[in-house]
Nucleic acid binder design. Structure first.
Length: 577
RNA sequence: GGCCCGGUAGUUCAGUUGGUUAGAACGCUAGCCUGUCACGCUAGAGGUCGUGGGUUCGAGCCCCAUUCGGGUCGCCA
C-alpha cells in the first residue's frame, strides 16, 4: 500500500498512529535542524516534518514523494488554523521520491493565473494543479453529475448520437473528416445533435437528453470555446413551449441553487419578448442584475421642437445620478463616443427644473409630460440616445451597461434568469433583398400554416426561445416544425423549394412523413453554466484541456501535419510549394 | 478577414529626451538557521530586449516589414 491516508484526512484522533502520505511538495521551509514540508494532494495539505537536511536531497517543490511517519499533535501557537489538518503533523525520517521534478517550473503553480495563457496551456497539467483551477474542474464534474440526476429524475433517458455524421449546409462552419473508403467524400462532426434528437422523437423516444459534444469551426470569444463545447441537450415529445420552459427553469434553478450561495432568481423565470428585450435592454441578452430600463422617446420627440432628435429614433434612460461629479458625466459621454455615438445628451432634474442644453428646447408642458411619463424624480438624470432605428437599440444597450456598472447598480451577488421569447420567424436580408429565416428553419411558426398563409412573414413569430442569465446566453431552443406541409410553406417563403429541404434535411423531412409527434427542446451550454457558477471570466478556466483562441492545443500540438501515407489514405493530395 | 493592445531574466513587470555594465519582485542555486506555515538572513547564477531590415557616432526606446499572443467586430442556423 502506497498510502494509508490522504493529505486532507488526518485529525487529532489519528495522533500516535503510523501513517503513509503521498503527494506533491507544495512548499519547503528549511530551518536547518528541522524541515517543514507542506504535502499536497487533491484532498488537502498536511505538514510533514523532517529532522535531517541530508534526506532532502533531490526534493524540491512539486516533487512527488511518499512520507511514512507518526502523527504528532501541534501545540497551541503551532496549530495552523488555515489547514483542516492544522492541528497535527507527521514526523518522518525521510521522504521517498516517487516522481522527481525538474527544479525550474515554467511558472509558479499558485500564481499561474498571472502567467500568460500560452505557457499555461502548454503545461496545462501543471496549471491544473492550481487550487482554483483544480476545484473548477471538480466542480464541473459535480455539476454535470447533478444535471444528469435531475434529467433522469424527470424521466429523461440518456441517448448517444453519432460523432461522425453528415455535413449540414447551414449554420456554423463544419469540421470535416475525410472518408478513406469513399474517396473525395467527407463526414462532419455534429454542430449539435439537432437532427438526431428530432429523429429520436419520431422513433418514439419520449424524453431524450445527453451531455452532448458539439463542434463548430468558428472563432473564439471569452465565453465561447473554439472548436468544441458541451450542451445539456434535451428534447420532449408532445411538448409545448411552456412544458419545455418548466423543465428548463426547474433544472437550472435547482442546479444554480445547489452550487452557489448567491441569490438565484426563482422559477418561473421572467418571459421577455424579443421586441421588448431589444427596446428596454438594448440587446437580446439582457443582464437583469442591472435595474436600468430603456424607454422609447421617438414619439415624444416627433412632436417636440428639438431639431437634432426630430424624425429619428430616440431612447431614454433614467438613472439617479445625484452627487455624481463632472468627471462622471464626461465619462458617460466618452463611453457613448466609444460606442460609436456622436455624443450623449442628458437632462438632470433638480429642485423642480431640468438642467442641460436640451432643456430650453422643451416647453413647460413637454417637460411636465416627460417627468410624468418617465417617472422622473428629483436627482434623476435622463440620458438620450438618438440614431437610426436600426442601431439605436444596441447603442442604448451599451449606455445602459455603462451606467449600470459606473453607478454600481449591478448586483454581482445574484443570478438573474429570463426567457427571451417571440423571436421573429423571418427577417429581411437587405444585401440579398430577400426574406431569410432569422434563426433556424426547424422552428414552428406561431400560428402554424394559417399564419404562414395569411400574415406578412416579417410579422410572424417563431416558437423559438433563449435562456439568458446575467447577460449571457445559456441556451436556445424551440418548438420544432414537425409538419412536412408547414415546412414546405415555411421554406417557400424564404425562397426555397421542396428539393432544397430534401437536400439539406432529407432524413428528417422524410421521417416527418411517417408519423411525427409534436416535439420541442432546448440545449443549455454546460461550459457556460460551469463558468457562471465558478465565477470565471473565461470559459477556458472551466475546461480541463481547452484550445487557445486560435483553436490550437498548445500542449498536444494540434492541429499538426500528418504523414503522406495518412493523406493518401484520406485521398488528400496537397501540392508542395 | 478588419480594428485595438501587447512580446524585455524561468514567471510577472519597470526601463526617463536615443547615451556608460538593461533593473525589481517572485522563482532557482549555494551557505547559515530546531518550530515554520508566503519562514528568515547572506551571497550567486540567470538576458540574441519576438524576428528581420532601416535611421543614427550610438537603438530595449525612433521608422518599416514580419511573426506570435490577448481582446473585440465579422462569424457563431
Amino acid at each position: 500500500m502506497l498510502r494509508t491516508h490522504t493529505c486532507g484526512e488526518l485529525r487529532q484522533s489519528h495522533i500516535g498512529s503510523t501513517v503513509s502520505l503521498c503527494g506533491w511538495v507544495d512548499t519547503i521551509r528549511d530551518h536547518g535542524g528541522v524541515i517543514f514540508i507542506d504535502l499536497r494532494d487533491q484532498y488537502g495539505i498536511t505538514q510533514v516534518v523532517f529532522h535531517n537536511q541530508a534526506v532532502m536531497e533531490g526534493v524540491g517543490t512539486e516533487t512527488v514523494i511518499r512520507a511514512v511517519g507518526t502523527v504528532m499533535p501541534r501545540e497551541n501557537e503551532a496549530v495552523n488554523e488555515k489547514l483542516a489538518t492544522g492541528s497535527v503533523e507527521v514526523h518522518s525520517c525521510a521522504p521517498e521520491i516517487l516522481g522527481p521534478c525538474k527544479n525550474m517550473l515554467p511558472f509558479e503553480i499558485d500564481l499561474s493565473h498571472h502567467t500568460r495563457e500560452e505557457i499555461r496551456l502548454k503545461y496545462r497539467y501543471l496549471d491544473l494543479r492550481n487550487e482554483k483551477l483544480h476545484s473548477n474542474i471538480l466542480m464541473r464534474s459535480k455539476i454535470i453529475s447533478f444535471l444528469r440526476s435531475q434529467m433522469e429524475a424527470l424521466g429523461f433517458v440518456d441517448l448517444q448520437t453519432p460523432i461522425l455524421t453528415s455535413s449540414s449546409p447551414e449554420g456554423a462552419r463544419d469540421y470535416l473528416v475525410p472518408s478513406r473508403v469513399h474517396a473525395g467524400e467527407f463526414y462532419a462532426l455534429p454542430q449539435s445533435p439537432q437532427q438526431f434528437k428530432q429523429l429520436l422523437m419520431v422513433a418514439g423516444f419520449d424524453k431524450y437528453y445527453q451531455i452532448a459534444p458539439c463542434f463548430r469551426d468558428e472563432d473564439a470569444r471569452g465565453d465561447r470555446s473554439p472548436g468544441e463545447f458541451y450542451q445539456l441537450d434535451f428534447e420532449m415529445a408532445f411538448a409545448t413551449q411552456e412544458d419545455i420552459f418548466q423543465i428548463g427553469e426547474t433544472v437550472l434553478y435547482n442546479t444554480f441553487k445547489a452550487f452557489t450561495n448567491k441569490k438565484v432568481s426563482p422559477a418561473p423565470f421572467r418571459r421577455i419578448s424579443f421586441a421588448d428585450s431589444m427596446l428596454h435592454y438594448g440587446t437580446d441578452k439582457p443582464d437583469l442584475r442591472n435595474p436600468l430600463v430603456i424607454n422609447d422617446l421617438t414619439d415624444f420627440f416627433a412632436t417636440a421642437n428639438f431639431p437634432l432628435f426630430k424624425g429619428k429614433a430616440v431612447r431614454g434612460i433614467v438613472a439617479n445620478c445625484s452627487g455624481q461629479s463632472r468627471k462622471f458625466f464626461d465619462g458617460a459621454e466618452s463611453a457613448a463616443i466609444a460606442l460609436g455615438m456622436k455624443g450623449l445628451g442628458y437632462l438632470t432634474y433638480t429642485e423642480g427644473t431640468f438642467k442641460g442644453p436640451i432643456a430650453k428646447f422643451l416647453t413647460p408642458d413637454e417637460q411636465a409630460k416627460l417627468i410624468l411619463e418617465e417617472n422622473i424624480k428629483s436627482g434623476d438624470t435622463i440620458f438620450f440616445i438618438c440614431d437610426s432605428k436600426e442601431i439605436v437599440s444596441s447603442l442604448a444597450g451599451g449606455v445602459r451597461r455603462w451606467l449600470g456598472e459606473e453607478l454600481a447598480l449591478v448586483d454581482h451577488d445574484s443570478f438573474e434568469f429570463c426567457y427571451i421569447v417571440d423571436f421573429p420567424m423571418y427577417e429581411y436580408n437587405v444585401e440579398e433583398r430577400k426574406i431569410d429565416f432569422t434563426h433556424n428553419p426547424f422552428s414552428m411558426p406561431q400560428g402554424g400554416l394559417e399564419a404562414l398563409n395569411t400574415l406578412d412573414p416579417l410579422d410572424i413569430f417563431a416558437y423559438q426561445y433563449d435562456i439568458v442569465c446575467n447577460g449571457i446566453e445559456l441556451s436556445s431552443g424551440a418548438v420544432r416544425n414537425h409538419s412536412p406541409e408547414i415546412m414546405r410553406k415555411a421554406f417557400e417563403i424564404a425562397g426555397y423549394g421542396e428539393e432544397e429541404i430534401k437536400t439539406k434535411f432529407g432524413a428528417m423531412y422524410t421521417a416527418f412523413q411517417y408519423g411525427a409527434p409534436p416535439h420541442a427542446g432546448m440545449a443549455p451550454g454546460v461550459d457556460r453554466i460551469v463558468m457562471l457558477l465558478c465565477g470565471e471570466e473565461t470559459i477556458r478556466d472551466v475546461i480541463a484541456f481547452p484550445l487557445n483562441g486560435s483553436a490550437q492545443d498548445l500542449m498536444m500540438g494540434a492541429p499538426s501535419p500528418v504523414t503522406d501515407s495518412q493523406l493518401r489514405d484520406a485521398h488528400i493530395y496537397v501540392s508542395k510549394i
